[in-house]
């Protein structure tokens, strides 16, 4: 009987001390926000296009971090983004929702623009400049190609044009050898 009492007492004391330590640690090492969501957010292309069904990149990152949605909904990020998020989350990679598209930027046909400022309000990165009843124009270097400005335009004067390929940004393609192709095919089959 006495032994039983000792056991309960000693274990109880341990548990009490451990509990207090844990309580202090959780206060002392508390981290604001969700660190996982931050990491995912850093991987996303930040186009703020909403094609994933969330109002921006950050909300999508939060949802992915809470395992509410799959990792394959970021269309502009493409396969590389999907793979790195899957790698970070430790989940199986999934095929993309939509085909990866070429990078585009918005272009306002100025002679047709009526200066309604609706596209300026829609732009998530403030890349369109203009004033009421003045022509608007897109700062091409800052446009993320999210297409959010197309829909509100009442006169349909915005085109999405392919981003010009710059000589300085050109990079070598993979060598066209049989082995390089074999590797590429193997990777493709692995992703499906």
């Amino acid at each position: 009987m006495e032994q039983l009492l000792y056991a309960i007492l000693s274990l109880g004391t341990f548990a009490f001390i451990a509990g207090i330590t844990l309580a202090i640690a959780s206060k002392a090492f508390h981290i604001e926000g969700d660190p996982l969501a931050d990491k995912i957010d850093a991987l996303l292309p930040q186009t703020q296009c909403g094609q994933c069904g969330y109002p921006g990149c950050r909300p999508y990152a939060d949802a992915v971090a809470k395992l509410e949605v799959n990792v394959n909904h970021c269309v502009p990020g493409g396969e590389r983004t999907m793979l790195s998020i899957a790698d970070l989350m430790g989940v199986e990679p999934k095929a993309l929702d939509e085909e990866e598209s070429v990078p585009v930027v918005a272009f306002v046909r100025e002679d047709e623009c009526i200066g309604c400022t609706l596209c300026i309000k829609a732009c998530p990165v403030d890349a369109i400049i203009g004033a009421p009843k003045q022509y608007h124009t897109v700062v091409a270097d800052q446009c993320t190609g999210c297409v959010l400005c197309l829909e509100p335009c009442p006169v349909d004067c915005i085109d999405m044009i392919q981003k010009p390929e710059l000589l300085e940004h050109w990079s070598w393609p993979l060598p066209e050898t049989h082995r390089a192709q074999l590797g590429a095919e193997r990777r493709e089959s692995h992703h499906d």
């Binding site: 930040q46 990165v125 990079s171």
Partner: peptide
Amino acid sequence: GQTAQMRREQSFAEVSRLRS
């Protein structure tokens, strides 16, 4: 080339995030 491209994309994403 691919690494340079990736770094460019990352810095562009960072700028876009700040603007947003």
